[in-house]
Amino acid sequence: MGRGTGIGGVILVIWLIIGVIAAGQRGYFDSEDTNCAKTGTILVTIVAGPLNYLGVNPKINCDLPEPSK
């Protein structure tokens, strides 16, 4: 456990911060309407991090079954 672990952790934190900034710039945090697809899209955008600035635009679709009546 040398410097590689510390540097990797710093890179990971910076990567995730860039992802949060990208999600904020796309307006994903502005709406109060929350559903599976929106939450998934926000999480994937954060994980994609800097790739968002290279043109990656992740979207998640969730089709949940409706309860029977």
Rank of each mutant, 00 (worst) to 15 (best):
L54V: 15
V20Q: 01
N52D: 06
L51Q: 08
G6T: 10
I46E: 00
I18E: 08
L43D: 00
G55I: 02
I14N: 09
K69M: 14
V13Y: 03
L16P: 01
T39P: 00
Y28K: 03
I42D: 00
Q25R: 14
F29I: 08
V47W: 10
K38W: 01
D63L: 11
K59T: 12
W15L: 07
C62F: 03
I60G: 00
K38C: 00
N61W: 12
G24R: 04
L64K: 13
V10D: 07
I42K: 00
P67V: 10
C62I: 01
T39D: 08
V47D: 01
P65R: 03
D63H: 11
V44I: 07
G40H: 03
L16C: 03
T34S: 09
R26E: 13
L54E: 08
G24Y: 04
E66T: 11
G24D: 07
Y28Q: 10
I7Y: 10
C62P: 05
W15K: 10
L43S: 05
V20L: 13
W15S: 14
D30C: 02
E32H: 12
D30W: 04
C62W: 03
I60E: 05
D33A: 10
V56A: 15
G27P: 06
P67D: 13
L16Q: 07
N35M: 04
I42S: 01
G4P: 05
G8R: 12
D30Y: 05
A37S: 15
R26C: 03
L12V: 12
V44R: 08
Y53K: 09
C36E: 13
I21A: 10
N35Y: 02
T41M: 01
S31K: 07
Y53Q: 06
G24S: 09
P67T: 11
I11N: 12
I11E: 14
S31N: 11
V13L: 14
D30E: 13
I17L: 15
V13E: 07
G9Y: 03
L16K: 04
M1K: 08
L16S: 05
D63V: 13
I7P: 00
V44N: 11
P58R: 06
I46W: 00
L64H: 14
T45A: 02
G4A: 13
I18S: 05
L12R: 08
I18K: 04
M1Q: 10
Y53M: 09
T5A: 13
K59C: 02
N52L: 02
N52E: 06
A48D: 11
I42Y: 00
G8A: 14
G8V: 05
G2M: 06
V20H: 01
I11P: 07
A23I: 03
G49E: 01
T39A: 12
C36Q: 13
G4K: 14
I60F: 11
E66V: 15
V56Q: 14
G8H: 06
G24K: 09
L16T: 04
Y53H: 06
I11M: 15
K69L: 15
P58S: 06
G24A: 11
G40A: 04
C62S: 07
P67N: 11
G9K: 12
G8T: 09
R3N: 10
G49L: 02
T34W: 10
N35R: 04
Y28N: 02
K38G: 04
V56F: 15
G55R: 05
